[in-house]
C-alpha cells in the first residue's frame, strides 16, 4: 500500500472526527472492511498501543499506518494526525478579531465550561477501566490531590504513580489488572 493512499485514508478519518477515537468507525471501514489492509486484531492492538502510550489516544492511527504499510505508513499516520491542527490558525485569526465582543466572550466561556463537562463524562468510562482495584483508586486520588493542591509537575505525578504501582505489585499488595 502506497504512502500517499495511507495518508489520504487516514487524513479522511482525522478530518471527519473531532476527538480521540471518533474516527474509529471510518478507519475500520476503510482499512479492515473495504481494503483488507488490517485485521480486527491488528486494529485492536493499535487501540491498545494508543491507550498505553503517552499523548493523545488518537495516536493509534500511527500504529494503523504501521500495520498497513510499515515505517512509511507510520510516517503517513503522523502526517495525518498533525495536518488538521493547522486549521486552527485561520479559526484563531477569525476569533481574535471578535474576542472583545461580550457575546463572543460569553460563547467562548460557555464552550470551555461545556468542554469540561464533556471531558468529565468521558472520564467515567475511563475510570471504570483504569481503576480496577482499591490501590489504584488511592493512586488516582493522591494524583488528583497533588495536581490540584500543589505545583508538582504532571510528569512527576505520572512517574510517581507508575513507580508506586510497580512497587505495590512487586510487594504483593496489588495484582496487575487484566
Amino acid at each position: 500500500m502506497s504512502f500517499l493512499v495511507v495518508y489520504l485514508l487516514l487524513l479522511k478519518a482525522t478530518l471527519s472526527s473531532f476527538s480521540g477515537l471518533a474516527a474509529l468507525p471510518i478507519v475500520r471501514h476503510d482499512f479492515v472492511v473495504q481494503r483488507h489492509l488490517l485485521t480486527d486484531h491488528q486494529l485492536n492492538t493499535a487501540l491498545v498501543v494508543g491507550r498505553s502510550t503517552p499523548g493523545p489516544k488518537g495516536l493509534y492511527l500511527i500504529a494503523v499506518g504501521y500495520f498497513a504499510a510499515g515505517v512509511p505508513g507510520a510516517v503517513a499516520g503522523w502526517l495525518a494526525v498533525v495536518t488538521p491542527a493547522i486549521l486552527v490558525i485561520p479559526l484563531l485569526l477569525f476569533a481574535r478579531r471578535r474576542i472583545d465582543d461580550p457575546r463572543a466572550k460569553s460563547a467562548l466561556r460557555a464552550i470551555v465550561i461545556a468542554s469540561a463537562g464533556v471531558s468529565l463524562s468521558a472520564t467515567l468510562p475511563l475510570s471504570a477501566d483504569a481503576l480496577r482495584n482499591p490501590p489504584l483508586y488511592i493512586i488516582a486520588a493522591v494524583s488528583l490531590a497533588l495536581l490540584i493542591f500543589t505545583a508538582w509537575d504532571t510528569l512527576w505525578v505520572m512517574l510517581g504513580a507508575a513507580l508506586a504501582s510497580l512497587a505495590l505489585v512487586l510487594a504483593g499488595v496489588m495484582t496487575i489488572p487484566t
Binding site: 491507550r51 472520564t123 489504584l136 495536581l147 505525578v157 504501582s165 510497580l166 496487575i176
Partner: peptide, 19 residues
C-alpha cells in the same frame, strides 16, 4: 503492565483535576 496501570490511574486523577 504494572507501571502502565499506575500511570493510567494517575491519568484519571489528572482528568478530574483538569475538570
Amino acid at each position: 503492565q504494572a507501571a502502565i496501570a499506575g500511570a493510567l490511574a494517575a491519568s484519571v486523577g489528572a482528568l478530574l483535576a483538569s475538570f
